[in-house]
Nucleic acid binder design. Structure first.
Length: 243
DNA sequence: CCGGTTGTTCAGCG
DNA sequence: GCGCTGAACAACCG
């Protein structure tokens, strides 16, 4: 559920509630829920893995972390963290981190970092990497200030696609290769989005959770790598290590 | 039934 | 003040 493309899918799925008034708020979230009552949703937005519900003077940010989920016009067995009733339906959010944000949207979120956003800026990503050349590519891709929305699946698939070893130093990549990495972080995210909507995402995984390299026909390496120590799948033969 | 995970934050420490 | 580590959170899958 939680990578950036999935949040874009959610944003689109709740379109019918846009500009609608919240008629009831419930849930076990500790935010001031009454503040949302009878308020009109001005817009639904997303920034990376953050789902943003915009009101006139503030916004509610929702992060699904690892286990969060949602239902539209349906309920799960468990208690929702936050639930909204509208005239035309309901939105239920489960096991997610919810915050009220008072600051202006554009002060808080760097849209150029969001790989799914129309304001995504590959040059900005390159500059952020240039000032931190010792960053490993497996960590760089998961850095939400550089590639907001990229998660562990996208990380593994991007590195496999572009044949770069996850422990490569970002600053050691030849300029062309660095460009490919940055471009593919966005490209693969849109493939993820398309496949997820068609319920065929897993079927297209080439590295993530896979046992064999489809190019080399040898076993993939599975290790926990980087400062984030996240599960990483790669081919030691066709993914080149740049040091 | 246990181990592991599409993620992030925060406390504690050196 | 920094970076690093581990804990906490939490639901589901295999």
């Amino acid at each position: 559920m939680p990578e950036g493309p999935s949040i874009v899918i959610l944003k689109e799925a709740v379109k019918s509630f846009n500009k609608k008034k919240i008629l009831a708020v419930t849930g076990n979230s500790k935010i001031d829920q009454q503040r949302l009552l009878n308020k009109k949703v001005e817009d639904f937005k997303s920034w990376g893995k953050h789902f943003l519900i915009c009101f006139k003077d503030f916004l509610v940010s929702v992060h699904f972390l690892l286990f969060g989920s949602y239902r539209i016009n349906e309920q799960r067995e468990m208690k929702p963290r936050l639930s909204f009733k509208f005239k035309n339906g309901e939105l239920n959010l489960y096991s997610c981190a919810i915050k009220i944000i008072e600051e202006d949207l554009n002060e808080v979120y760097d849209w150029s970092a969001d790989v799914m956003n129309e304001n995504w800026d590959a040059t900005a990503a390159r500059k952020k990497i240039k000032v931190n050349p010792d960053l490993l590519v497996c960590d760089a891709l998961l850095d939400q200030n550089i590639f907001s929305g990229v998660g562990n699946i996208i990380k593994n698939e991007v590195l496999y696609r572009i044949r770069v070893h996850p422990l490569s130093r970002a600053g050691a990549l030849p300029p062309k290769k660095l460009k490919v990495l940055i471009d593919e972080a966005r490209n693969y995210s849109f493939d993820f989005y398309k496949w997820k909507k068609e319920f065929v995402l897993k079927k297209h995984w080439l590295a993530h959770t896979k046992k064999y390299c489809v190019r080399c026909d040898i076993p993939l390496v599975k290790k926990h790598l980087g400062k984030t120590n996240r599960r990483t799948f790669y081919c030691s033969n066709c993914q080149l290590l740049y040091e």
